[in-house]
Design a binder for these strands. Structure first.
Lengths: 253, 253
DNA sequence: CGCACCGTACGACATTGTCGAACGGCATTC
DNA sequence: GAATGCCGTTCGACAATGTCGTACGGTGCG
């Protein structure tokens, strides 16, 4: 039976839609979006509700993601070796750099944040674990794209977030080439005005890049007067990346 | 067609199993656990892999949860009104109490942690968002059980974690009655030796308890000499819970 | 070498999910 | 206040769909 199971595929599509929609959605709404008959969607929703993957508002009748899905999804982190091994090192990187630290993997041409350490200054910060960042506009993304065997670029036109965002494909591949040579990447106000990020690759025992670790913060703290990343911060990040890689078995010595 | 869709139910069971197993599992292993033929399980896995809900190790051939599931699951938090509204208040509760703060909901007789603020002292702490805590052995759980319309207790014998854990059903319902009267709950070394937690209920506009907020920390800081929770901490927690409830529309004045 | 186990492929069968049509409830409209 | 639109939900016949016995190639172990 080499072929996917239709109903499961559809159920996944429903969940994806509910996840992207941000708000609750009705049966008809989902049916229209998926181009499926309403009763079909309803059957799927009923089953997903039974297993706790979606919940239904008692009053409006609309559906949203369920708690069980959240809990199961978060168990992904337990099995994620990259994240487990990186826990200690990211803490110490945060302490040394005094900036917030994130660890990410490439997922469908975007950066999936699997770990996030807040900047150690007690400021109010939002947890970004589970979020997807645009790969072409952040340092972690560039690191991952530069070392990606599958060319994940050229899927779609590159979206601009600020006027420093790289939107040209040629310029991006030049930048990626530079990242490959230097061994680290930076993003200077390419995703958020005034924000800078630095990142370096994490490799496993097969020397494949499996993730990236990076810091991010305001440009005044991360860059010098020439808008260049401060060298000591770059080395902190690269050292952290190397330490994690060593723990994953990439560097035998 | 009032009846769940078999394949989706089974797919959910596979995911649950993979989530609980902590490590990677093989097709045969899953098939045996679910009492299903191997090819059936394989078909499900193939589909789940296609949609990114599971991943397969290239070398061992075993399966584990996938990144897509993690990302979709984490979107649950965006739609969770309780958590959204509670963000600010939990930060300030952490600042006032100088302890770590958690927000939880009842999920299948356990406490699902939907938010977690670290203790503001730069110490190394593990993020517990997405985790499930035993309801009868923590303060948030007691608050939720005490205000639960469905009697979620008596499902199974109560598991002991320390020798202070309440394992007797009658003693538990006495404790819950006290929680209802006082309006807050405590757990003194009932889950972890040396650890204490305090919690209060969060109600929504229908005055239904939809969650709980609480702090936890070492007994020396949370309790006085008589092992009684310190009153000022209790009021901090209760005030935070009331503020969130008011924001959810529970208290009109 | 042979055995046991793995993940995977095939394909006949009937179980299973699909989806057009229809129902009751709720707003809104005229 | 009847009419209309939309909603989430149910029914049930049909056939498409997924199920699962059987079998294959690969790997590790004794």
């Amino acid at each position: 039976m080499p072929g996917p199971i239709q109903s499961i595929e559809r159920a996944a599509a429903v969940l994806r839609l509910l996840a992207s929609g941000a708000r609750r959605m009705g049966v008809g709404e989902l049916a229209r979006a998926l181009e499926l008959p309403k009763p079909t969607v309803h059957g799927i929703l009923r089953t997903l509700q039974l297993v706790g993957f979606v919940e239904q508002s008692p009053d409006t009748g609309k559906y949203q993601l369920g708690a069980a899905l959240f809990h199961i999804g978060s168990s992904y982190l337990d099995g994620n070796e990259l994240r487990t091994r990186a826990l200690n090192w990211s803490d110490s990187l945060a302490a040394r750099s005094m900036e917030s630290v994130r660890i990410g993997t490439l997922h469908e041409a975007q950066v999936l944040v699997v770990h996030h350490v807040f900047r150690p200054d007690n400021s109010r910060q939002v947890l970004e674990v589970g979020a997807l960042l645009p790969a072409h506009a952040c340092a972690m993304g560039k690191v991952l794209l530069a070392n990606d065997p599958v060319g994940h670029v050229d899927d779609e036109p590159l979206k601009a977030f600020t006027n420093a965002t790289i939107t040209d494909l040629d310029r991006l591949s030049d930048a990626l080439e530079q990242v490959r040579q230097r061994g680290w990447a930076s993003d200077v106000e390419e995703l958020v005005e005034g924000e800078v990020s630095l990142a370096a690759p994490i490799r496993d025992r097969r020397t494949v890049t499996v993730g990236a670790i990076g810091i991010s913060g305001p440009i005044e703290r991360l860059c010098d007067a020439d808008r260049q990343p401060r060298t000591e911060l770059v080395s902190y990040v690269r050292e952290a990346a190397r330490s994690i890689s060593r723990e994953l078995g990439a560097i035998p010595w």
